[in-house]
């Protein structure tokens, strides 16, 4: 990803941050971590919106998507352990994978972890994949849970994507016991 797409993505991250900050319940209950891959790098560990500085991302390198997914899922497990030790109640985590490429490393183990965790039995997390123009949608479909197929971004509507994400997270932060949160329709998806 380079040029205009990466500029739009960075702009989308700023929108995401701004909208989380404007939601009082999301401010208290949402934590964000950011990882990039190419190589796999933890840019921001989990932070509440007021402590989170949107990174300025740049493109480059290869696309070790498999390793990035596994590291991301491990990061979530570590965070859950921290919450449990502190006695903090938490919500089902969301993972958002955004790419315009195809994995350049083995991805089968990552796919197994995603499908095992994002299942009706485990409910360990929800895994969303978003393909930007040029993304290998077939590989993404093979990685994602069959119940949550990858979505194709409409043009470069990152701002709409992140706006949807922040309002959806706000909805989860407000959800009550037993509630399955109905997500607003993703206006940013071409599907």
């Amino acid at each position: 990803m380079s040029g205009r797409p990466i500029a739009e993505l960075n702009d989308g991250l700023l929108t995401f941050h701004r909208e989380l900050l404007s939601d009082q319940m999301a401010m208290q209950r949402v934590e964000v971590a950011v990882m990039t891959f190419g190589p796999v790098t933890l840019v921001n560990d989990f932070r509440t919106p007021d402590q989170f500085t949107p990174p300025h991302l740049s493109a480059g390198g290869d696309t070790p998507m498999g390793a990035a997914i596994i590291e991301g899922l491990n990061l979530i497990e570590t965070r859950k352990t921290t919450y449990r030790q502190a006695g903090v109640a938490y919500f089902r985590p969301w993972v958002f994978l955004i790419t315009d490429g195809s994995p350049t490393d083995p991805w089968e183990e990552a796919a197994r972890r995603v499908r095992e965790g994002d299942s009706a039995e485990r409910k360990a997390f929800s895994f969303f994949a978003v393909g930007v123009e040029g993304a290998d949608m077939a590989k993404l479909a093979a990685i994602c849970s069959p119940d949550r197929p990858p979505l194709k971004l409409k043009g470069l509507s990152f701002r709409e994507l992140f706006s949807w994400l922040s309002s959806s997270l706000g909805g989860v932060a407000r959800s009550r016991p037993g509630e399955t949160v109905a997500l607003p329709p993703p206006g940013w998806s071409s599907v």
Binding site: A89, Y90, F91, R92, K123, V172, R176, P177, G178, E179
Partner: peptide
């Protein structure tokens, strides 16, 4: 509560 804060029994 189940694993998550928004899950319980009815």
């Amino acid at each position: 509560h189940g694993e998550y804060a928004n899950v319980t029994n009815f």
